[in-house]
Nucleic acid binder design. Sequence first.
DNA 1: CTCAATCGGACGGATATCGTCCGCTTGAGA
DNA 2: TCTCAAGCGGACGATATCCGTCCGATTGAG
Lengths: 205, 205
Amino acid sequence: MNATPSPRADARQNRRRLIEATREAISSRGLDVSALDIARAAGLGVGTLYRRFGTKEALLDAVVLGLYDELCDTAQACMTRADAWEGLSEFVMELAKAHRDNLGLATVTAACDQQPSPELAQRTAALQEAVTDLTARARATGLLRADVTWQDIIICSRAALDTQHCLGVDAGSEGWRRIITILLDGLRTPGHTTLTGPPPHTTGI
Amino acid sequence: MNATPSPRADARQNRRRLIEATREAISSRGLDVSALDIARAAGLGVGTLYRRFGTKEALLDAVVLGLYDELCDTAQACMTRADAWEGLSEFVMELAKAHRDNLGLATVTAACDQQPSPELAQRTAALQEAVTDLTARARATGLLRADVTWQDIIICSRAALDTQHCLGVDAGSEGWRRIITILLDGLRTPGHTTLTGPPPHTTGI
DNA sequence: CTCAATCGGACGGATATCGTCCGCTTGAGA
DNA sequence: TCTCAAGCGGACGATATCCGTCCGATTGAG
């Protein structure tokens, strides 16, 4: 019945290794990683990569899906926070961290959004709904300024990316937290300046 | 006497065209522009590009130097503002705009910093000094929170980059202004949260 | 009108990356 | 222990860029 019998133990382990290596590679070099580099980092040959995933694309999809799943979990945890503001700010910080730790996450997001797999589309929708809710709750408490939209929140979270991406800042640097902290302070009432123009358009996270 | 007599009129015009085309190319696609693309955008052949600049690198250097010069002018203008806070915030907004309009400016910066030409090093130093002064003046008025450093200011200005870079947001979008506005509000006293950790390290602008 | 300066773009050469192929190795059931 | 299907490694073919050069055709300017 089972057309694809459970794979051998080493095959399963190698699959995990490849995903792990891909995450690390994305983390330090963004999406422009070659299949060869990933395989080497995993201590495997490229042949194994392609046998396990069929396509480099498929491997990346698997990794991105994993990241999204984690973000969904984070969002859920933040939603249960009693303090709505803390829930929102924690999520922003975590989302920023995800961007910092996964250079090009936003790029993948944009790329994937062109032809989103059903799984990814589902996660994206869930995340956007979560951000919308977190935003609404924080605004209801009066701590989040009224002219900020959930799209602003998402874009703000990306601010951590450049710190890491553009300037080869040493990986250990935590400077991005300062920027996000400043942003969060700017998100709190009262705003000194009123935001103008339409909220930024964003697809994905 | 003049070893290099004044070039022909068409040669000069083509030089200008190439620089203009390069700026536009960088603006929309970042630094990964091929020499062929630039030449085509300028309505010229690659041969002309190489005859004018010798190297693709040299062309990029010329463009980046031009951008830095403009930023230096902007910084000077901001320094003369009577209102120190307005001077600082205007500069941040302009620097952010420069990043938005020149994807990869920060990347060039980082790359150039490896082997900075004397001209570029001079502009970089001037800009960093200007930011330091603008920061000090704004802090002296009490409007800029005390725990913010000039490095923070520079990093903040880069927040506009991702909006454009990662997500293929339509070029006309002005959403980045909202983010910078939020950041500027966060930079004002009083800060709700105190910044921790060392200020981010940055080379270049 | 002349010709040196300039131009255009095909082309050589180098690099990078994807995905395949096939001989060798190994996990795991009998 | 034995057997062999499943799995592995990495050289290799194919493809895609991209840089910078070269040379015949073109053109500005004296």
